[in-house]
Amino acid sequence: MRLDKTELALVGLAVLLLLGGMVAPGWLIFLVTIALAKALVVQGVVMQMKAGLVSFGQGLFYCVGGYAVGMGGPFLGISAGLVLLAIGVVAAVGLAMVLGLLLTRYREIFFAMLSLAFSMILYGVLVKSQELGSTDGFNVNNWTLLGQTIAGGETATHVVFLLTVVAAAVVAFLLHRYYRSSVGMTCEAIRENEVRVEYLGLSPRWIQYANYVAAAGVSALGGGLTALAAGHVDPDMAYWTTSGEFIFIALLGGTGSVLAPFLAAIVFSLVRTYAIEFVPHAWQMILGFTLLGIVVFLPKGLWSLFTRHRPEAPVVPAAPQKTSTGGAGA
């Protein structure tokens, strides 16, 4: 198997992160873990953006993934971390397979609003049901990894970090391949012109559906890892402003590379850490102005700063289709 530049960079970055994890202070490891886990949720948003859809409700799957980890212990008696993560992904995929039947009929703002509505439904159910933890949510503690109990504290931080880096690298690797596959490229084609895709003999709706379901799974994994890292889940995971944050990070990074959401999420987390400390009531304002700046000046996100600026079109010889006009008979 030959690796391209992005794939090599991925492997390199993962190794670097793991090495860095041995020496970095706990707070930084924690910050990076949360950022990478959230970046996985953002990957789900980006997958849909590439297909032309903006989900204002990706928090739904983030929440499902998180609650699977939070509820697996008290409700199912499961403590194995990997199993809890898998339950979250399976639950999210199952839910997406149902919702996707309806959602894939919608585009543009209707998709945005309907996806928002679904995540708010979950929020509403969680907040109002005592059995589901109400506004308090659940604590995640005493889970195990390959039979070892992860009690919390330093060890837990390191273990989740390791888990998250590996998961992020694997998902990113697969996504990178996916974006260049027939389905991935056809998603972009659907964004560009759905009518043409239909007239090529493909079902845009089926492809959107597959993409939506896959994105749900990826986002749920991010939610599960966040729950393990933060040790807590609550209904705010499904609140629409959480989804707004994911869109922000997605736009900040852009859709240019599978690495972009990770970069953007780390930048986002670092800036937030300091902003909340120094200007607590201006953090959202900073986000707002940054978002406007991105829309106006960097529509392809931060990642476009790292890519070589290519001219829009190569120099083209004059009138390429000019040939003899006498060839065709009447």
Binding site: S182, V183, G184, M185, T186, G201, L202, A210, A214
Partner: peptide
């Protein structure tokens, strides 16, 4: 290339490059 792949099969691949 997208049109060519579409012509080959109505079920495009998820991981094989386009």
């Amino acid at each position: 290339v997208i049109a060519l792949a579409a012509a080959e099969s109505p079920h495009p691949s998820f991981l094989k490059p386009l």
